[in-house]
Simulated scan of single mutants.
Amino acid sequence: MRFATVDFQGSPRAAIDFGSHYRVTPFQDLSEALRELDGDIAALADISEFETIDAGEAILYATTKTPHKIICLGLNFTDHVAEMLHDRPAFPTLFAKYALTLTDPYAAIVKPEASNAMDWEVEIGVVIGKPARDVSLEHALDHVAGYTVVNDVSFRDFQNRTSQFLQGKIFERTTPVGPWLVTRDEVDDANDLAMTLTVNGELMQSGRSSQMIFGIAETIVYLSRILTLEPGDLLSMGTPSGVGAGRTPQRFLVPGEVMESSVEGIGVLTNRIISTGSSTS
Score class of each variant (00 low, 15 high):
residue 186 E to W: 03
residue 101 T to N: 03
residue 152 D to G: 08
residue 144 V to C: 10
residue 151 N to Q: 05
residue 86 H to K: 03
residue 157 D to L: 10
residue 113 E to V: 10
residue 121 E to H: 00
residue 92 P to K: 02
residue 184 R to Q: 14
residue 103 T to D: 09
residue 180 W to C: 09
residue 189 D to G: 06
residue 129 G to K: 05
residue 180 W to H: 15
residue 121 E to F: 04
residue 175 T to Y: 00
residue 89 P to M: 08
residue 189 D to R: 05
residue 119 D to R: 12
residue 175 T to V: 01
residue 175 T to Q: 06
residue 193 L to T: 11
residue 198 T to I: 09
residue 139 H to E: 15
residue 193 L to H: 02
residue 97 K to N: 04
residue 170 I to A: 14
residue 115 S to V: 10
residue 186 E to T: 00
residue 132 A to Y: 04
residue 102 L to G: 14
residue 145 A to T: 06
residue 139 H to V: 15
residue 104 D to R: 05
residue 128 I to W: 13
residue 101 T to E: 02
residue 194 A to Q: 12
residue 146 G to Q: 09
residue 131 P to H: 10
residue 112 P to T: 14
residue 106 Y to L: 10
residue 139 H to G: 12
residue 137 L to W: 10
residue 172 E to F: 08
residue 100 L to W: 00
residue 155 F to H: 15
residue 154 S to A: 13
residue 161 R to E: 05
residue 155 F to Y: 15
residue 190 A to R: 07
residue 126 V to D: 13
residue 137 L to V: 06
residue 113 E to T: 13
residue 125 G to F: 01
residue 125 G to L: 04
residue 121 E to Y: 12
residue 185 D to V: 14
residue 180 W to G: 07
residue 188 D to L: 08
residue 113 E to K: 13
residue 90 A to K: 14
residue 162 T to N: 04
residue 96 A to W: 13
residue 147 Y to R: 06
residue 175 T to E: 09
residue 192 D to T: 01
residue 131 P to S: 08
